[in-house]
Design a protein around this nucleic acid. Structure first.
Length: 528
RNA sequence: GGCCCUAUCGUCUAGUGGUCUAGGACGUAGCCCUCUCAAGGCUAAAACCGGGGUUCGAAUCCCCGUAGGGUCACCA
């Protein structure tokens, strides 16, 4: 039997990194065993059933390269592809209904007419007696035929009849043997009470089992929060006469010691907002993007992370290849992934480590690609024309090559290119004061040398500067002063490369500009 | 509260009774390299939750605590 796994997100409008990790484990497991990975949209809850909320999830998967063999079409139109379509639960209600009716006729399910007030009352009573409340509905022991008739006349929540006095056992691939007494399991709701249109829609726990049987899912790999759900589902499998799949419950992803929840998304810190702004976003634009968040895939995509780095980070979160490997490209993970090496304890999401891995992957990206993928950020920051001229592209390539490993994120291109692409440098007052002013005369002297330098390339320039200021201290001072003069700031990639890229004319112009600022400070009266 | 799960450096992890004076990585600190910043090199600080067993021997097995978490929906 070929392995078939699935990931079943509900359409929330964004892709959560915790969800991606779960999906990734499913994907890896299926691919490793030459099986299929299926995507299904769990939208049984009408309130969450928004077509436009599916697309960001599909786009996220496509961006990450996690391809699915069956499921929704990638365009988010609501269509599906694959032998068991449709793959939207909202489009499969007839199947749930049919399955539920079968259980009703067989006496394995029954309508429950217990009022919510009565249920609440019983719950309170049980609480007072310090006993767990295990709900059993009103018509549990009726004759099945009577129940069928009754249900037709007066629909109500349809409940599964949980067998009493039994122990449900299953072997979890991560947790080991799990055992639960059925006496602690309430009769679960299969079908809801009729809604305004009279439809009795399936509840997730039921729909998921019907679908997993239908789709021939062999391994259910999901987050640990579903662990206590599993015995109930096994009971549903049994009632439906199906063999339950294998289960593996992987630990949750935490953030700062708490579950990285879809509901309570941590707000962006000032630092994170600043990083987004550095990508060219404005405050107003960010207001409307509540999907940009340390917990969403969109956030990392926006900042200019590589999908491969995110994938590598996520696969290492709760799984290890061996005792030393950290850099684990997808192909390698694919060859070695096993559920046996999945950890049991929850894992904290560490942005710093993700950032480091990103750097490792970025080292292997060719300069041309860095330019290409940095372009959207440059456009947003209005640093390049659209479309980019060949000359501009050439200059960007020089910048990328000079910046080298300093470019960790594609969005970093903005910060390295901006000082060179802007008309005039934005002079940082502190830098001007500290680095330029004390070395102004030195710089003036060096300016004359620069005017004579031929050719205006990095090695020649370095030579020229070293000849002009051979002593260590003046050398350092001159480098700092020149850097501030031509870029406005104290940090950046190699000075000689910077000068060469700028070209002689522009360098001289900028030096004059800077010198004018510091040479005539007395002319500017202090602000009143 | 009931049921269930988990527990090694700040963080991610290796470790499946002796090779553990516990290994790797991120992060942190220091030094080196150096025109600043990155990158790189070297070094350092840093952990087996507590208590009982079992055993010649326990991070590893068992029990009890403790702490954290999940779940108890006509949410998924």
């Amino acid at each position: 039997m070929t392995v078939r796994t699935r990931f079943a997100p509900s359409p929330t409008g964004y892709l959560h990194v915790g969800g991606v990790r779960t999906a990734l484990f499913n994907w890896l497991f299926a691919r490793r065993h030459g099986g299929q990975f299926i995507l299904r949209i769990d939208d049984t809850d009408a309130a969450r059933n928004r077509a436009e909320a599916v697309l960001p999830i599909l786009e996220g998967f496509s961006w990450l390269g996690l391809t699915w063999d069956e499921g929704p079409t990638p365009d988010g139109s609501g269509d599906s592809f694959g032998p068991h379509k449709p793959y939207f639960q909202s489009q499969r209600q007839d199947k749930y209904l049919a399955a539920a009716m079968r259980l009703l006729q067989e006496g394995k399910a029954y309508p429950d007419y217990t009022s919510p007030e009565e249920q609440e009352h019983r719950r309170e009573l049980a609480q007072r007696l310090r006993k767990p409340y295990v709900h059993r509905g009103s018509h549990r022991d009726n004759d099945p035929a009577d129940n069928v008739r009754l249900y037709r006349e007066r629909p109500a929540p349809l409940l599964l009849k949980v067998p009493e006095g039994r122990v449900v056992r299953f072997h979890d691939h991560v947790r080991g043997l799990v055992e639960v007494s059925t006496d602690t399991i309430r009769d679960p709701v299969l079908l809801r009470a009729p809604d305004d249109q009279g439809h009795c829609r399936a509840v997730y726990a039921f729909a998921t089992v019907v679908d997993d049987i239908d789709f021939r899912i062999t391994h259910v790999i999901r987050a640990e929060e579903h662990l206590t759900n599993t015995p109930v589902q096994i009971l549903i499998y049994e009632a439906l006469g199906a063999t339950p799949p294998e289960f593996a419950h992987i630990p949750l992803v935490y953030y700062k010691g708490e579950k990285m929840s879809k509901r309570k998304l941590p707000p962006l810190t000032a630092d994170e907002i600043a990083r987004l702004k550095a990508c060219g976003w404005t405050e107003e634009q960010l207001q409307g993007r509540d999907d940009l968040n340390i917990a969403t895939v969109a956030y990392y995509r926006e900042l200019g992370y590589l999908p491969a780095a995110l994938i590598n980070y996520l696969v290492r979160l709760g799984w290890s290849l061996d005792d030393t490997s950290e850099y684990i490209p997808l192909e390698v993970a694919l060859q070695h992934f096993s559920l046996e090496r999945v950890t049991k304890a929850p894992a904290n999401f560490d942005e710093k480590k993700l950032y480091w891995l990103q750097g490792e992957y970025m080292k292997r990206v060719p300069p041309e690609e860095k330019v290409e993928r940095g372009l959207p950020y440059l456009r947003r920051a209005r640093l390049v024309d659209d479309p980019v001229s060949p000359a501009q592209r050439q200059r960007l390539l020089q910048i990328v090559e000079a910046a080298g490993e300093r470019i960790k994120l594609f969005s970093d291109l903005v910060q390295f290119a901006a000082p060179l692409l802007k008309r005039d440098p934005d002079y940082d007052p502190t830098a001007l004061d500290k680095a330029l002013r004390p070395a102004a005369e030195l710089l003036q002297g060096f300016r004359a040398i620069l005017a004579q330098t031929h050719p205006f390339d990095a090695p020649t320039l370095e030579n020229a500067l070293r000849m002009f200021a051979p002593e260590k201290a003046p050398h350092k001072a001159l480098v700092a002063a020149t850097r501030v003069a031509v870029t406005g700031v104290t940090v950046g990639f190699g000075l000689y490369e910077t000068l060469a890229i700028l070209g002689k004319e522009e360098v001289l112009r900028r030096i004059d500009l800077a010198l004018a600022r510091v040479m005539a400070p007395s002319a500017v009266p202090p602000a009143a």
